[in-house]
Simulated assay, not measured.
Amino acid sequence: MSLLEDLQWRYAAKKMNGEQIPQEKLDYILEAARLAPSSSGLQPYKVFVISNRELLAKIKDVAWGQSQVIDCSHLLVFAAWDGYSDERVSEVFNYTMDERGLPHSTMDDYKNNILGLYEPLGKEWQADHAAKQSYISFAMAIAAAAEQKVDATPIEGFLPPKVDELLNLENSGYKSTLLLTLGYRDADNDWLVNMKKVRTPKEDFITKIK
């Protein structure tokens, strides 16, 4: 199937049946998330893959009781940097230069330019910028899940500080940004499963400027 057909097939499942997805499908989805583009290639986020039922139950309690959290196969928690620093940016760029066989100093001018732009904007702006990068990875995971015929439900309805606490993120430099449940739809109990997919009409969504 084409990507457009896969995206037409997918929807945000409201009920999942608890069936486990094969490891190879999970790995494929995670690799798509890892390969996603990010600003300056910094990838200022990471993904937690949770299948522990006790922990999932606790997360459900701070995610407005959404049943997919406990009935999914795996829950992905995307967490982004809480800010940019010379140490963090240098670590990423130095690793990149090592992988490419180049001196660390190769990226110094670019790194200093980034920090010079970001630092005056403050930690709140930086955290928001990093969170936006995690959304790109999140979208790639959703598309990959559709390709693998795995249901993926995006969830912004949760209390990030509570999830941070459950994952011991308070002093890690990361903040949770998004949840994504992976699993299989419970077609007999999901009110949305047979509903027509509706999106903004093309003529309203696309504006062509010549």
Rank of each mutant, 00 (worst) to 15 (best):
S2I: 07
D6W: 08
D6M: 02
Q8H: 06
Q8R: 08
R10K: 13
R10E: 15
R10D: 15
Y11G: 02
A12Y: 07
K14S: 14
K15R: 06
K15D: 00
G18H: 05
E19L: 09
Q20D: 06
Q20G: 01
I21H: 00
P22R: 04
P22E: 09
Q23L: 05
E24L: 01
E24G: 01
K25A: 15
Y28S: 09
Y28Q: 09
I29D: 09
E31N: 10
A32V: 08
A32N: 05
A33G: 14
R34D: 00
R34N: 06
A36V: 10
S38N: 08
S38D: 14
S39E: 12
S40K: 02
V47Q: 14
F48L: 07
F48W: 03
S51T: 04
R53E: 12
E54F: 07
L55M: 12
L55E: 08
L56C: 07
L56F: 07
K58W: 05
K58P: 00
K60G: 00
K60R: 09
D61I: 03
G65E: 05
S67L: 03
Q68D: 04
I70E: 15
C72R: 01
L75G: 05
L75P: 02
L76S: 10
F78N: 11
F78D: 13
A79Y: 14
A79Q: 10
A79T: 11
G83D: 11
Y84I: 10
D86M: 12
E87W: 13
V89G: 01
S90C: 07
S90T: 13
V92Y: 03
N94I: 13
T96M: 12
M97A: 14
M97S: 06
D98Q: 09
G101R: 08
P103S: 06
H104T: 10
S105Q: 09
S105K: 02
T106Y: 08
M107D: 07
Y110T: 07
Y110I: 07
G116F: 09
Y118N: 02
P120H: 04
P120V: 01
P120S: 02
P120W: 12
L121A: 08
D128S: 11
H129M: 14
A131K: 07
K132V: 08
Q133W: 11
S134Y: 08
S134D: 06
Y135P: 03
A139Y: 05
K149G: 14
V150F: 03
A152N: 12
G157I: 07
G157L: 04
F158Q: 04
F158L: 08
L159Y: 02
D164A: 04
D164I: 01
L167T: 01
L167I: 03
L169Y: 07
L169G: 05
N171K: 10
N171I: 11
K175V: 12
S176L: 10
S176H: 11
S176P: 05
T177W: 03
L178Y: 14
L180S: 10
L180G: 09
Y184G: 00
D186Q: 04
D188S: 13
N189P: 06
W191Y: 13
L192F: 12
V193H: 04
V193R: 00
M195T: 11
M195P: 00
M195C: 08
V198H: 06
T200S: 04
P201D: 13
K202Y: 01
E203M: 09
F205N: 01
I206H: 06
K210M: 15
